[in-house]
């Protein structure tokens, strides 16, 4: 535990000193903050735009940070041979890998938390204004096209789910880092993320009702079975439609994310164990 903690702390500190990460964070907060200037345009549209910009930024920049941090995690250590001085100390490979993972995860999540706070501040101020303005117009729902039911709770939960989503993505990029050079690993991680975003689409492609052949069914179902379903961590629709999302449902999502992360980290460990350093 001690070793995992030490490696994690060192990784966290090192990551926070990376300029490109700081740049991404600043940029993300600027974009989220820029929606402060959003003015009344059309009932519903600005509220949706506000949410889309905020949640979109958190997820998009979270994704960039998770991937670009994760993919260099192991390959850099091997390339620069810093790993030699660590693995010859009483640190097992599993401890090292977990330490690196938790260190980068803490970095990703703390970055996202800062974005989340920025968004929540903007939303608490601007969102309420837009909702009041919509109501003043006397339309039956405060904002046509977007429901305001449970909106504050749902946004908090959506940010929470994006944390889970990026936990899985960090695991994917760390795993890729144990297998490939960082450029390859980055391409791999983005690919997995994008395919995972459209997992349901692949499932529907596999449906024979669509006229898919037997070979195609096998391929698409295999993709659907193996690829992490990143799309399940997307709560945009629940927000727009004002669906109440219970804690048990949220717990299931988190559970699924954790199982994904454990599974991926296990693969990462098995690959890393045999890797020559």
């Amino acid at each position: 535990m001690q070793a995992i903690y030490r490696v994690a702390v060192a990784t966290f500190h090192e990551a926070w000193r990376r300029r490109f990460l700081n740049a991404i964070l600043v940029f993300a907060v600027l974009i989220i903050g820029s929606s402060w200037t959003l003015t009344y345009l059309q009932p519903g549209a600005e509220l949706k735009l506000l949410i889309d910009i905020g949640l979109g930024s958190i997820r998009f920049f979270g994704m960039l940070i998770a991937v670009f941090l994760g993919v260099r995690l192991i390959s850099d250590e091997i390339e620069k041979r810093t790993i030699h001085t660590i693995l010859t100390k009483p640190v097992t490979r599993a401890q090292f890998l977990l330490g690196k993972f938790f260190g980068s995860l803490a970095t990703v999540l703390s970055n996202m938390a800062l974005m989340g706070i920025a968004f929540y501040v903007v939303f608490a101020y601007k969102g309420s204004k837009f909702m009041v303005q919509g109501a003043a117009q006397g339309s039956e729902s405060a904002s046509p096209g977007i429901s305001t039911d449970f909106i504050y709770g749902n946004i908090a939960k959506a940010i929470g789910l994006s944390f889970v989503e990026m936990t899985v993505l960090t695991a994917v990029s760390v795993m890729a880092s144990t297998l490939f050079s960082w450029i390859m690993a980055a391409i791999f991680s983005f690919f997995v993320y994008f395919v995972g975003q459209a997992a349901d689409f692949f499932k529907s492609l596999a449906n024979p009702a669509r006229g898919t052949g037997f070979g195609g069914q096998i391929v698409f179902n295999a993709i659907y079975g193996i690829i992490p379903h990143f799309e399940v961590f997307d709560m945009r629709e629940a927000i727009i439609k004002g669906t109440y999302v219970g804690w048990d449902t949220l717990g299931m999502h988190v559970g699924l994310g954790l199982v994904y992360a454990i599974l991926i980290m296990l693969v990462a460990f098995l690959a890393f164990m045999n890797r020559e350093v």
Binding site: E14, K80, R81, T82, H84, T88, V91, T92
Partner: peptide, 20 residues
């Protein structure tokens, strides 16, 4: 083994460390 690693030290060739 961890017990073994407790008793050794290693200076690699052209060492490189966390430079921050």
């Amino acid at each position: 083994s961890p017990e073994y690693k407790r008793r050794i030290g290693f200076l690699p060739e052209g060492p490189y460390f966390y430079d921050h």
